[in-house]
Each structure stands twice: as C-alpha cells, then as structure tokens.
Simulated scan of single mutants.
Amino acid sequence: MSGWRLLITRPEADGALLGEVLNAQGIHSSSLPLLAIEALPETPEQRALLLDLDRYCAVVVVSKPAARLGLERLDRYWPQPPHGQRWFSVGAATGEILREYGLDTCWPVGADDSEALLALPELDEALAQPTPKVLILRGEGGRTFFADTLRARGVEVDSVALYRRFVPDYHPTALVERVRSERLNALVVSSGEGLHALRVLAGDDWHWLRELVLFVPSPRVAELARQMEALNVVDCRGAGTTALLAALRDTPVPAS
C-alpha cells in the first residue's frame, strides 16, 4: 500500500488515531478536519426521554460521538441499563464502544449505512412486538432516512440530538495548499456532510481536486460524489479504518 498519500478529513481525535494506523502501515497521511464536534446542552424533553429509556425495545446510535455522549447520559440516569434492551449501531467502530460498555449491541457487517442496519434480522426481532418504540441517539441535522423508514413501518421513533457538527474556519486556500505542498494523491471523507464541506472548501479548485482518488464510506455518499463530478470515487463500504485499509489494498495507486 506504499505510495498512497492521503488527506484525512475526519474530526481531529479520530483523524489522529487513523493517522497512527496508516503510519504503521507505511502510508503517509495529512489531517485536515472538515467537521468539528460540539456537544449540545441537554433539554428537559431529552432528559424525559432518557429517563424513560426502558420504554424502548431498541436504541440506535448513529456515530462514535453519539455513543460517547450517550453513554455519559446513560451513566447519569441509568447506572444499570434496562434489562433485555437491544442496542444497534450503523458501524463497527460505534458498536464496539457500546459493547465495551456492556450493552447488547448489533451492527451490520460489510456496510456502514442505514440501509444495511434496516436489513438486520436482529432489528426485526427487536421490533417484533405490538407497539415497538425506538430511540435514536444522533447528531443535530443529518439524514432522517432510518427514522422515516421505521415510522412508515408503524414504529414509534424518538430522537435525541447530542451534538452538532460544524466546519472549522479555514483560509480559503488551506485545502489546495495542503494537497499541493504534501503531494497528496487521495482524499478520504467519512460522511455526506464531510463530502459537502470538502466541496465547499475546494471552491474553484474543485476542477482539479475532483481528479484525485476519493475514498467514501457508502454507496449513497459515492453517488453524491459522482453528482459533484468527482472522477475517481472508491466506495469503501464502511466508514471504519478496516474498510479504508481494504479499499487502499484493492485500489491501484495513481501514477505520480
């Protein structure tokens, strides 16, 4: 895999961890976080939902920040989590955080997206009751496909927004200068929001940045990238480090 020179756009802490793994594999990377995380204050309505956690047959956690912040709230209100409750995550990295805490957690294998989560037999089993209720721990805004699909199936869905993402205030040329100065040959994004932030920061330089290899986490984000006229999109079928490493192994390094 030597020869890859990657721009990592994950939030700072996650980008640093990924950089360490890549470095151990002999892969050069440079971190330019395009989304930062800010915890949101708890509202009385959210507190009421969490105090009634045992009403839900399933809890769905959409990201690592949601897992970490959600577990802080769980510690506060439920020293002993409700017995028999199933927890679900979109990806393995988030799921491992929950499982290490001691929660009965499932996630899809081979894809990190809402569609794969909705196809899990374990989710169907958890929802197989007269009046199923699901709680989603998530960030502010973002995609509502999962919740909308469950509601269409007759499931009662509540959501708790634990954090917001925002784009750091970079100089307009920060992205292109980083790519050129370090001779980077690929860009890595981990969400649709991250892709949008990348496109905005690229500005008028997108006409040549779009020619770089662009690693994305899912078919949905791959389609968004192609709609933006990215020319070399690679779907990693997951947002985690393992999925990225597999995609790097399977993708030819561009000629320098």
Rank of each mutant, 00 (worst) to 15 (best):
W206K: 03
D235T: 15
L17P: 01
E140P: 00
L32K: 01
E193G: 14
Q25D: 14
L162P: 06
R5E: 13
R143C: 06
S31G: 11
V253Q: 09
V21W: 00
E177S: 10
R226Y: 01
V233G: 08
R210H: 02
Q85A: 00
R237E: 07
D158N: 15
A93V: 02
T9M: 09
R76L: 07
T251R: 14
D205S: 15
G70A: 09
E100W: 07
Q80N: 01
A111Y: 03
V61F: 07
L98I: 11
F145N: 12
G91C: 12
L135E: 14
A39L: 10
A225E: 09
L231A: 10
A48G: 07
V90D: 01
K64H: 03
A243Q: 13
C106Q: 11
T144V: 05
P65A: 04
E45V: 04
A222D: 08
L71Q: 11
D169L: 12
A111V: 07
V176A: 12
V216M: 00
E223A: 12
A58G: 01
R138A: 06
G3P: 05
W107A: 01
R210D: 02
P252Y: 10
L53C: 13
S190I: 05
G203N: 10
V189P: 07
T105E: 14
L17F: 10
N185Q: 05
G203S: 06
F145V: 12
L195V: 11
L71A: 06
F166R: 13
L195M: 05
S218G: 08
R237S: 07
